[in-house]
Design a protein around this nucleic acid. Structure first.
Lengths: 215, 215
DNA sequence: ACCTGAACACCGTTCAAGT
DNA sequence: ACCTGAACACCGTTCAAGT
């Protein structure tokens, strides 16, 4: 079981979600395809378990984080830790919190995030929504990352920077009268860093939360 | 072309992303599978175009929205409009803003959101990040919705409420000492509305944005 | 310009049969 | 308890050939 998940994660890391097939996994394990069905009921469960397996080290880090006097600061560090993990493993975002009865590490992370809201003056509803919002920011910001390279990127052998640059050029060719905003931000878009984007989105949500809790 | 997208959207609406196959689509169009390849290069493009096709009416609504004196209020209405569309078509979230050179309606929506930030005292970078954050909130909140029903849900013939209730029961069985947050919010989680969750996340981001712009 | 049948190289999943 | 080979019912995609 352990080695099944280990090899599944390795396949996902090497070539993304589309590379994880039962046949490829069986080959790496040196067995037949049907064997894997002794450990998991179907591919969904395999992916849920693989994702949670990869969350183990992340939970370890989060649990060892020192607590400051400011729960908002602690939430920020935790969210960044989680986001960093997803940056390194973009395939994670699609399977985060999909089945907590199987994903115990993920549930642990959810709990640790939530415990910070227990330190703030909020209602249970506000706490629930706050953590959902934070998870949403992390996952929402990571959606871009999780996307498999498009056919265009594979064909032209273009990397991310080159791809962003081409899109930016398309945008610059648009009518400035009709698309004033796109023209305003096209230089920002061109070569932008996903981490900056995430950080800004996170800060907006944390600011809103700070105001709500009055801390 | 128009009818290809029309039928593709119909298939997606009826049974989700997994129902849209070239064979199923060809059958509905009364033709062969290979015909579709005259209109689109591959399945990715089909999905990108279908998603943008469904965005047409949404853009129409957003463009006809009256402008208030508060750009934040206008952003809220637009975000809610977009979210509502995704609630009705959960499959949309996965293909939003994936290829703007093809997705002209989607680009139009992005522009309309952004134009509200032009009315606020922000830098170009802040504007870019603000709209990215808002899109992230919408898409991030919609990720739950977009997920296909799990095998467990199909097997047991359980609906969403019943499913939430089962997960909630699992959570209630956890050790309260170890999972104080999960216990705090389990009653909120049980039977929660995705719209409420989205609204809260949106409000936190808008509050942060209001503070940043000083309006 | 538009459509087709038939094939190719894959998938996830099942199942009777093995140890 | 664990593994297997072989089959089943699908996929997206290609291509030579048609109108």
């Amino acid at each position: 079981m352990e080695s099944v998940l280990e090899e599944a994660v390795a396949l996902l890391d090497e070539a993304g979600a589309s590379a994880l097939t039962f046949r490829a996994l069986a080959q790496r394990l040196g067995g037949g395809v049907a064997s894997i069905y002794w450990y998991v009921a179907n591919k969904d469960e395999l992916l849920d378990r693989a994702a949670d397996h990869a969350m183990g080290p992340v939970l370890d880090v989060v649990e060892k984080l020192p607590q400051s006097d400011d729960p908002i600061d602690d939430l920020r560090v935790m969210a960044v830790t989680l986001f960093d993990a997803i940056v390194q493993r973009p395939w994670l975002s699609a399977y985060f919190m999909r089945n907590t009865s199987i994903q115990t590490h993920t549930l642990g992370l959810y709990e640790k995030l939530g415990q910070q809201t227990l330190r703030m003056n909020l209602t249970a509803s506000q706490r629930f929504h706050a953590v959902s919002a934070l998870v949403g920011v992390v996952v929402g910001s990571a959606v871009d990352l999780g996307q498999e390279p498009t056919q265009e990127m594979l064909d032209g052998n273009v990397d991310r920077d080159e791809y962003l640059h081409r899109v930016a050029q398309d945008w610059r060719d648009l009518d400035p009268q009709e698309f004033p905003f796109v023209h305003e931000i096209v230089d920002e878009f061109d070569g932008h860093d996903d981490v900056d984007q995430f950080r800004s989105a996170l800060e907006l949500t944390l600011t809103g939360l700070r105001l709500q809790a009055g801390v």
